[in-house]
Structures are given as structure tokens and as C-alpha cells.
Simulated scan of single mutants.
Amino acid sequence: MRWLRVVLINFLGIVLVLVFAEGVARLVEPKVSDSSNPITLPDPELAWAPHPNGRSHGVSSEFDIETVSNALGNYDFRVPPDADGRRLSILALGDSHTAASGVSTGQTWPKVLQADLERSGVSAWVHNGGVHGYSLDQYLVRLRRMAPIVKPRVVIIGFSAATDFYDVGRTRAGDFVYGSDIGRVYFSLGDNGELVEHRELVGKRLGREDGTTPMLSLARLRSALERLALYRLFKRSELAMWLAMRLSTTDEALWPGLDTALKIDLAGEDRRRFDLASKLIGRIAEESRGVGATPMLVHIPYLAQVYDSVWQSSFGSVPGYDRDLAGKRLGDIAREYGLLYVDVYPAMRDYVARHGGEWVHYPIDAHPNVTGQRLIGNAVFDVLSACLKKNPELKPDGCR
């Protein structure tokens, strides 16, 4: 009995410590609060879309931000006046790295780009069509929605190395990375490698019986652990990264999107994701040119690419990965499908090296901070301004 009492006391002590640690982790992790309007609304084709005229106040240990959407549902303070033939209309597509998490609406890279263009004497409006949690599938549908309204002459894909090679081609309950129970338009590859559009899940709520993921899979375990702030905090530690690289399986990597982007030899699911992402980028480029717009692809790098300590604790600690490979692969895709290409990776690496290792991402939230967003916007401006000098009329193929 005495032995049992010692075990119970120790067990309760561990539980209390973990509960306390969870409470502390919830206090320090980024969170959004004080929303005067919902920031998104349900959408049958997209699963969710930004709330028109929404406003949200986000407070965390790392930032204090204001997020605003305009009447078009883009992250901006207002809707610009109708096009007058002189203003350059630009549509930026992307996920939370573009929308963007961790910075206020006026500090996102699309708004940095707009300010840079205005300072250079180019009248421009950059519509921030990025949406938190979106995938390449949703970028394409969003382009189709927004192009007739904003009439872009440039369409920019803000490609997130963190997720955009991973969150594609997901088709069943529990399989979509975000909003796993919400149906939407999605794309797959046909037998001959062609892009196939699927609409059978549009407007549906997906139940568990619709999925085929095993109940005890690593995906379900990770999904359950993600509800714990302590786990979310721990998984970014160097120890967690070191362990994850050694315990990960083919399809359950530490950062699946970045895993595909940096893995030297692609096979199986990695190859399928890469090929599907490439085809989706190509289709977005094709449909952008179809509405008279010049397509651009922007590589937005993630933590392991930018910071030596994170690289060495994760992908750099095991063989089979190349830190520079994501930018090279995206550059190849851009050349194949005729997109202007912007690789932000060198600019971020250079900034960190010149500023004594200063981070351009939030360490906990992991999205680019104000400096990181500025670097993205500046890098896009450099490429676009060079294109404008060469091709003032922005003919779709005039800068290739």
C-alpha cells in the first residue's frame, strides 16, 4: 500500500506539473482575441473565405496586431477606386504567410510592395488575396473569383515552403490539413499526369465515416497533440526537431511541406505532391495569362532554411536533404510554366547573417515578422520593377 501511495503521489505531481506547464504555454503562445466581426465565413467551394469588412485584434507574447478586411474580402483597409487605366492592379494569392499572421494589415508584404511601387513612381494597388490556411487548390479558385473584379495585370503566388508542397490533393474527411471536415473544390492528377478538378465535396460537411485514415495513425495522434499548447511549444525546440527527424515516417515528417521541398530524392507521396503542386502553379499561370495578367511565383522560405541552428537540429542532422533545394525547384517550375520568379531565401539568409542572427520570423508563431514581411515585399519589388522597365505594358510574356 505504501508503494502504491508513493506511485499515486508521484503521478499526481507529474499531472499537476504538466497542467501548470500547459497553462503557461497557453499564456505565451500567439492567439487572436477581441474580434468585432468573424474574420472568415463558410464558403461551399473554398471551405472558408475572408469576412467582408472584418476586423480582428490579435495579441500574443510576440505581437499586438490589427487585421482588417475590405468589402471585397481582401486584407486591406478599403477598396480602391475603379481602375482608371493608369493604376497597376496586382493580385497576391497565398496563405497565412501572405495574409499575413503576426503583422497588422498595413505591414503585409503585398502592402510593402505597393508602397515600394508608389515610391518608385508607379501608381499601383496590390490586392492582398491571401487567406489563412489556404492551399494551392484554393489559390486557383480564389483567382477565378477575384480576377473579374480586380482585373489584375499581375498575379503573384506567394508560395509557402512550409505547407504548399504538402497541403495539396487531399480528398477525404480528416485528410485536408485545415478544415478537415469541410468539403471544397480540390484537384488531383489523372492517369496521364493531367490536372483533374473535383467538385463532389463542394458544400458538404464531411463525417469521420467518409475517411479512411486509421484511428491510431500518426496523423491522428499528431492532430490530438496539436490541441495542447505545451506540445505546440515543445515541437519547435531543438530536441523535438532532432527526435522528429529520427522518428518520422515517409508521410509523417516534422514539416511535411518542407520535407518534400528539401528532400534530394523524391518518390511516392513526395513525388505526387511535388508534381501536383507544379501542375497547379502551371494552371494558375495559364489562367492568369488568360485574363491578361503576368504571373509571378514567390518562394517564401521557412525556419529550417533560414536559421543555422534550426537547420542543424532538423533536416541538417540527417542525410538526404539539401538546404538550397526548395528555391532551385521552384525556379525550375517557374521557368517551365513561364512565371516571373522571386526567391526570398537569399535575402532572408543575408539579412540574418548581417544582423548577428536576428530572426525575421517569430520564433513561436513561426511566420515572418515585420522585418520578414518587408524583405519579401522588397524582393518582389526588385523583380517586378525590373520587369516594368523592360516591359512597361506588362505583356504576359514580355519579361521572360
Rank of each mutant, 00 (worst) to 15 (best):
D365K: 14
K389A: 12
N391C: 00
R78K: 15
F159G: 04
G23P: 05
R236T: 09
E200V: 01
K263N: 10
F315D: 14
E226S: 11
V155E: 03
L225K: 04
S385P: 05
V15F: 13
R272P: 08
V154F: 01
P52Q: 09
L117G: 03
G129R: 04
H361D: 13
Q138E: 15
I300H: 04
G292Q: 10
Y337F: 07
P392Q: 15
V177W: 14
G169W: 03
I9C: 12
A100N: 01
H198K: 00
Y307E: 09
D175Q: 09
G338E: 04
N192A: 15
L228I: 13
V318W: 07
L41F: 08
D137T: 00
M245L: 00
T249Q: 06
L243M: 09
L225M: 01
E200Q: 01
G174P: 02
V59L: 01
G129N: 06
W255M: 14
L195S: 10
V344T: 03
R271Q: 10
G121T: 01
I149A: 15
E22Y: 04
G94K: 11
S188T: 15
H361G: 13
A47Q: 14
D308C: 09
S385Q: 12
I333M: 10
F381N: 12
S104K: 10
V306M: 02
S385F: 15
W311I: 11
F234S: 15
W125K: 03
V168N: 01
G133P: 05
N70D: 06
L225E: 15
M348G: 13
W242S: 15
S188L: 07
V306C: 09
D116S: 14
V344P: 00
V28W: 08
R283K: 08
I39W: 05
L384F: 03
E238A: 12
L12D: 14
K204H: 01
S101K: 00
V360I: 13
N128R: 02
Q114H: 09
R87W: 11
V150E: 06
A293W: 03
R272Y: 10
R184L: 07
L258P: 13
L325M: 09
P346Y: 02
D308G: 10
W48I: 07
P346K: 00
R153C: 11
A92P: 00
A162I: 14
V122K: 02
E118P: 10
S123V: 09
R283M: 08
K263G: 06
R400Q: 14
Y231E: 02
E118L: 13
I65V: 10
L330D: 02
W242P: 14
V318E: 01
P50N: 10
D343V: 05
I156H: 00
S288P: 07
N391D: 02
P80V: 14
S188Q: 13
G169Q: 11
L136M: 10
L230T: 08
